[in-house]
Design a binder for these strands. Structure first.
Length: 245
RNA sequence: UGGGCCCUU
């Protein structure tokens, strides 16, 4: 079953759903019953290619065969709902999880927070984030990244910086996505000095920034005539790429 | 062996 699931996931990952489904047939012929992971992979892949109908179909097939969806399955369903504009439905589903067997985990919370942030509902996202903490769930780096991105997107740069600082005080360390998010947000708003501070933070922590984000910042610097700093950042980041330590 | 974040416009 592990071998089949690994292969199936391989097909799903590259969107070759026809081949994934024929593998599902082969499993049946071989007498190998699909399990929760098989179905969850399929559902995820169908959501990703935008085929909500097929996703729904395999959720039903899973349940009808007595295969119990778990927290991963639920999270994928929630993400599918949130990303297809059905936030309200996603929340109903989410709230129902508390009354059922499976509690959400950090990923589940993050999916909903992301849905709110992407719909420009950062205030609601902040409330949900507070609720998450009040209820004793622990945000991870992705949860923080989502909130930081939401705050940046609505131009609330100082609040995003505060959250960044808050996360550095916890056991949750910023990663490359954290810095890319902040850098892009700050450059977009023209706050180049804070962006530069973040670059030096990231180098202190030995975190390699994405080339896109660096190019973005260098562009912003050149546009306001700070050519020497632009060159300096270019040189420095090139060095970190070659010799990260 | 399966789930969430930046960039992928």
């Amino acid at each position: 079953i592990v071998t089949y699931n690994t292969m199936l996931h391989g097909f799903c990952k590259v969107g070759r759903m026809d081949e994934a489904l024929s593998l599902l047939q082969k499993m049946a012929i071989a007498g190998c019953d699909p399990d929760v992971i098989t179905y969850t992979s399929l559902v995820h892949a169908f959501y990703k290619v935008g085929d909500l109908g097929e996703a729904q179909r395999y959720i039903q097939e899973m349940v009808s065969k007595g295969c119990i969806p778990d927290i991963v399955t639920y999270s994928i369903i929630l993400d599918g709902l949130a990303k297809s504009g059905k936030l309200h439905e996603a929340f109903k589903f989410f709230r129902a999880m508390f009354d059922r067997d499976s509690l959400p985990d950090a990923v589940t919370w993050s999916i909903l927070l992301n849905g709110l942030c992407k719909s420009n509902k950062v205030d609601e996202a902040q409330k949900l984030f507070d609720e998450m903490i009040t209820k004793g769930f622990v945000p991870d780096v992705v949860t923080y990244n989502i909130m930081i991105a939401g705050l940046c997107k609505s131009g609330r740069l100082m609040e995003s910086l505060q959250l960044y600082k808050r996360m550095t005080l916890t056991q949750c360390h910023p990663n490359a996505v954290t810095y890319n998010t902040l850098l892009n947000g700050f450059c977009k708003e023209g706050n180049i000095n804070d962006a530069l501070n973040l670059v030096s933070d990231s180098s202190t922590k030995h975190i390699a920034l994405s080339l896109d984000s660096v190019a973005n910042l260098v562009d912003a610097l050149r546009k306001v005539g700070r050519v020497m700093e632009a060159d300096y950042v270019t040189t420095k980041t090139a060095q970190w790429q070659d010799n990260p330590e």
